[in-house]
């Protein structure tokens, strides 16, 4: 923990992430406006005291929409990534522990999914599953499951032959308890780093899909759909696109710094040098 506090970048990342999370959680209480109700007396108002981030073409408060939109974006990304991490890590652990054909099939499958441009895969899945919020989360889960499977498998293969794991098996621990109590804690840190990175990229995928109009459908806000909206009248009201873009960047910055910092902390070679 002391090492964590000493790593300034990780600290800044954790702080930014915490602020983003707090803003997203407190969104409905922070703002007196509705994210979807139009106000035709305040169309495309520039930033002011009443509307710190201005209003959009329906007179909706942009800050409110960003707070609600970040909620949707984050929820979609977090749900998708967590499901992908859970399924993928479990599959990878089983593959590493038991080996055999299951491992071969799993690794070929992850090779295949690794060879698709991830955004193309997301687009393809959206066509197959249908456009909409839930399906973005499903697509993100499907994109990330093989990444976690490969990560978990590669780490677990290294840990599996360690003496303490063999000791546990000699002492008659069940397979389940060896996997969950001996192997899992030892691969948890890299999985955590990957989760933070994946959530950041999941936000990008959601925003990209919604930006194209394939994701969250209007009038519901998400970071991507607000940007798509702002693109329409960028010349007259640049604040809509700009501020929602800045919001995305801040969220990504926090997550990237956090995962970077944690990774540095785990790398003993780097830690010695710092």
């Amino acid at each position: 923990m002391r090492a964590f506090l000493a790593n300034r970048l990780a600290l800044v990342g954790a702080l930014v992430t915490a602020i983003v999370l707090a803003g997203v959680a407190a969104g409905p209480w922070l703002s007196p406006y509705s994210p979807t109700d139009a106000d035709f007396l305040a169309l495309l108002d520039p930033p002011s005291l009443h509307h710190p981030f201005g209003t959009d073409s329906f007179g909706r408060d942009v800050l409110t929409r960003i707070l609600y939109g970040a909620r949707v974006s984050l929820a979609v990304s977090v749900c998708g990534v967590l499901v992908g991490a859970l399924v993928g890590t479990a599959a990878g652990l089983v593959a590493a522990y038991f080996g055999g054909w299951w491992q071969a099939v799993l690794m070929r499958l992850s090779d295949l999914l690794f060879s698709f441009p991830s955004f193309v895969l997301a687009l393809f899945l959206m066509v197959v599953l249908g456009f909409g919020v839930t399906n973005i989360a499903v697509a993100i889960a499907l994109i990330y499951a093989p990444i976690f499977a490969r990560l978990a498998r590669n780490m677990a293969v290294l840990v599996k032959d360690e003496p303490w794991v063999q000791a546990a098996s000699l002492m008659g621990q069940s397979t389940w308890s060896i996997i969950s109590r001996e192997i899992l804690p030892n691969i948890a840190a890299p999985v955590f780093v990957q989760i933070a990175l994946a959530i950041a990229f999941g936000i990008v995928i959601e925003a990209g899909l919604s930006f194209l109009g394939l994701g969250v459908q209007p009038p519901n806000p998400s970071l991507g759909s607000i940007m798509a909206d702002g693109r329409e009248y960028f010349g007259r009201a640049p604040w809509v696109l700009t501020l929602s873009g800045v919001a995305i960047s801040i969220a990504l910055l926090g997550l990237n710094l956090l995962s970077d910092g944690v990774r540095d902390l785990m790398d003993p070679k780097l830690r010695a040098r710092l």
Binding site: A200, V204, A207, G208, F211, M227, R231, F234, L241, T242, G245, I248, S249, I250, L252, L253, N256, L257, D260
Partner: peptide
């Protein structure tokens, strides 16, 4: 770090 936090469609604009 800034570059990584800037999705391409946002940077485009």
């Amino acid at each position: 770090v800034l570059g990584i936090s800037m999705p391409d469609f946002w940077l485009s604009y």
